[in-house]
């Protein structure tokens, strides 16, 4: 599935955050979206998913114009989101999260089932009866990803999945994302951890003050530390 964003403008009551974003994610592609704190990465993710209203511009999924569509239509078009902060339903159990997501996924059809998820992420199977709010950070992140995958999406928007996780756990997250890609799912990955981003993505896009200011393939970007330093303040 392909995502094509053009001239996207969006923001909050206090002001505009996205000032005309152009971004493409091709079928089966993984694009890393980088940028400093407050650049507007999460705002872009939420706007693409329809959780924040686009003021103007275009969001096309497989050529269909969906800017301003409500989130359930984006989901039915094949998009899923793993939001920053995970946003699980804290009082609900792991099993209930999986069931609710799988119910939507079954309608659309596809290869992800609760059984397959539990096989891939056995920790979730062990904790089926536990409330999501009582899981460890890593388990919560896995559950958030599982919830998205069970809807059988063709494009997953992942917003800082490694945030607050120990390096070994972030590694596991990267593995799950890689297996998603192997399945042919396209990924837009917002990430502060550059090594994780590089290990997963084919393309890098850098956001600054609500615009995409740089695009490169991952190898190109890695060969050019000056640009990374200038845009991200890292070496």
């Amino acid at each position: 599935m392909s995502l094509r964003v053009r001239e996207l403008v969006a923001g909050y009551r206090r002001g505009t955050v996205l000032h005309g974003v152009d971004l493409d994610v091709g079928p089966g592609q993984a694009v890393a979206l980088l940028g400093r704190n407050g650049a507007g990465k999460s705002t872009l993710v939420m706007t693409v998913m329809g959780l924040l209203r686009a003021r103007s511009g275009s969001v096309r999924v497989d050529g269909h114009e969906l800017a301003g569509a409500r989130p359930h239509r984006m989901a039915r078009a094949g998009c899923a989101v793993v939001p920053q902060g995970r946003r699980l339903w804290a009082p609900l159990t792991v099993g209930e999260h999986l069931e609710l997501a799988a119910r939507q996924g079954r309608r659309r059809g596809g290869s992800w089932t609760v059984e397959r998820i539990v096989e891939a992420l056995p920790r979730l199977g062990e904790r089926r009866r536990q409330a999501a709010g009582r899981l460890s950070g890593g388990e919560q992140q896995m559950l958030a990803i599982a919830r998205a995958l069970l809807t059988n999406p063709r494009l997953v928007l992942l917003d800082e999945p490694s945030e607050g996780l120990a390096p070994a756990v972030a590694e596991q997250v990267a593995e799950v994302v890689t297996s998603m890609l192997a399945d042919g799912v396209a990924v837009l990955l917002v990430e502060q951890d550059l090594y994780l981003a590089f290990s997963v993505a084919d393309q890098v896009a850098v956001m600054q003050r609500g615009r995409i200011v740089h695009r490169a393939s991952t190898p190109e970007f890695r060969r050019d530390p000056g640009t990374a330093h200038r845009l991200l303040g890292v070496s």
Binding site: P71, H72, M74, A80, W89, L100, T151
Partner: peptide, 14 residues
Amino acid sequence: RAAVADREMVSALG
């Protein structure tokens, strides 16, 4: 119950 906890995430499921 899911919608009480976070209804946007329910709609994001479809």
